[in-house]
Design a protein around this nucleic acid. Structure first.
Length: 425
RNA sequence: GGAGAGGUGGCCGAGCUGGCUGAAGGCGCACGCCUGCUAAGCGUGUAAUGGGGUAACUCAUUCGGGGGUUCAAAUCCCCCCCUCUCCGCCA
């Protein structure tokens, strides 16, 4: 959520930001609502002041035994007018707020201009594509052939966009998750968290999933519970309505959680394999940062995510999302895209964003600067470190062998219970 | 699932037979005084948000959230949320 005052006092800045994003949100709608609001407020407050004065007078007369019926009668009329204006004002304010919470964040000035994902600049590459002297399989083909992946039975249990992992595949998933956590906790100083995997609508609102993206999540019938689409939601909301000490910042959390997404609107996209599932595991990093240092935090967090692929020895590139492709809440986002030989493509495996104070304002997360009496909003950041399911895909596609077997990357061996190579049954 | 208790300012805690109560008292905090040994005492001040004014100041809103009654609601009525205790059930 943007600062109401900013939108009121600097609508041009907001208009510009919306244009850069290619957003269809109209600032004029807000402007006219706000104009009307100001007029109503002025009128109703004048009446209320009059009513309060009269109330005091009535009270005084009553206590001294005087008659006040004339005042009471006049105030009856004022009261009904106040009621009218109040309800009108309430409606305007509700619409104004609706506009405000549907308005995306203002991109940071360093976020590159662009219309779509085609305009996202590549910042850097790490490593090299593996030299395979055979035609690489796609991960679902390999995983199925090796007896680890089963999409048919998953469809029987639940439906499309689910998978069952057996034996080595389940073990590999667990190994990846444990490995990632060990790095993010042990080497990068994150505090490990196990949060609820369901959250209430207030939490979903706090991070920006609601109200605009309600259809993207799973909601439990008859409960105000949503399955978390990412651990960003519970982790960021941990400090909702709290005031942190300046010395605490940055606070660095990470969590391994399942993530649940409806993937509405993605019909026909990535229908095969593990790339786009209703349920997947992700190690998520969330930071509460000092506003003055949040962009350094973004660089560090992105590096934290990259470390995982470097240790695994998998080629990737880092791109920066342009203004037309950046997420609703984000001011600046780096995506890490891993190389998938089977698909012959780079695919997103991590997304690291600085949300600045956009979520902090929604969720009311503040800190107390040492030299000031006023509290200020923190900056929140989040990034995958990494998406476990997609890393599983990357391992399969990058470490497959000509004979159809799969080698386990060095870094994962300690986690694999002695499995070093997976061969067809 | 059943029964009960409660949600008030940074915190604790009165008020809840409706009317100078934005809210006693305490703690904490800030400033000042006093005092020469840890420390204590005394005095004063101390909510947030929005509007107007250079300013002193002033107006409005806020006692979990929403609605209602009334000239007037922290106080009365209705709905919802949350927390706690006891019982039941349960990995």
């Amino acid at each position: 959520m943007l600062d109401l005052k900013l939108v009121q006092k600097n609508p041009e800045l907001v208009r510009e930001a919306l244009e850069k994003r290619g957003s269809d949100i109209d600032i004029e709608v807000f402007n006219s609502l706000d104009q009307k609001r100001k007029e109503l407020v002025q009128e109703v407050e004048t009446l209320k002041a009059e009513r309060n004065r009269a109330s005091g007078e009535i009270s005084k007369r009553k206590r001294s035994g005087e008659d006040a019926s004339d005042l009471i009668e006049t105030m009856g009329k004022v009261a009904s007018r106040v009621k009218e204006l109040d309800s009108e004002l309430g409606e305007i304010e509700a619409r104004e707020r609706e506009w405000l919470v549907s308005c995306p964040n203002i991109p940071n000035e360093t976020t590159p201009l662009g219309k779509s994902e085609d305009d996202n600049p590549v910042l850097r590459y790490w490593g090299d594509k593996p030299k395979l002297d055979f035609k690489p399989k796609e991960h679902w083909e390999l995983g199925t052939a090796l007896g680890g992946l089963d999409f048919e039975r998953a469809a029987k249990l639940a439906g499309a966009r689910f998978a069952v992992q057996f034996g080595w595949a389940a073990r590999l998933e667990r190994a990846l998750a444990a490995f990632m956590l060990d790095v993010q906790v042990g080497e990068h100083g994150h505090t490990e968290v196990i949060p609820p995997y369901m959250v209430n609508s207030t939490s979903m609102f706090g991070t920006g999933q609601l109200p605009k993206f309600a259809g993207d999540s799973f909601k439990l019938a008859d409960w105000d519970y949503y399955l978390i689409p990412t651990a960003e939601v519970p982790l960021t909301n941990l400090y909702r309505d709290e005031v942190l000490e300046e010395d605490m910042l940055p606070v660095k959390f990470c969590a391994l959680t399942p993530c649940f997404r409806s993937e509405a609107g993605s019909y026909g996209k990535d229908t095969k394999g593990l790339i786009r599932q209703h349920q997947f595991h992700k190690v998520e990093m969330v930071r509460f940062a000092h506003p003055e240092h949040s962009y350094e935090d973004l660089e560090e967090m992105t590096a934290n995510a990259e470390t995982i692929l470097q240790k695994l020895g998998i080629h990737y590139r880092v791109i920066e999302l342009c203004t037309g492709d950046i997420g609703f809440s984000s001011a600046k986002t780096y995506d890490i895209e891993v190389w998938l030989p089977g698909q012959d493509k780079y695919r997103e495996i991590s997304s690291c964003s600085n949300i600045e104070d956009f979520q902090a304002r929604r969720a009311n997360i503040r800190f107390k600067p040492r030299d000031s009496k006023k509290t200020a909003f923190v900056h929140t950041l989040n990034g995958s470190g990494l998406a476990v399911g997609r890393t599983f895909v990357a391992v399969l596609e990058n470490f497959q062998q000509a004979d159809g077997s799969l080698l386990i990357p060095e870094a994962l061996k300690p986690y694999m219970g002695g499995i070093e190579k997976v061969e067809a049954p």
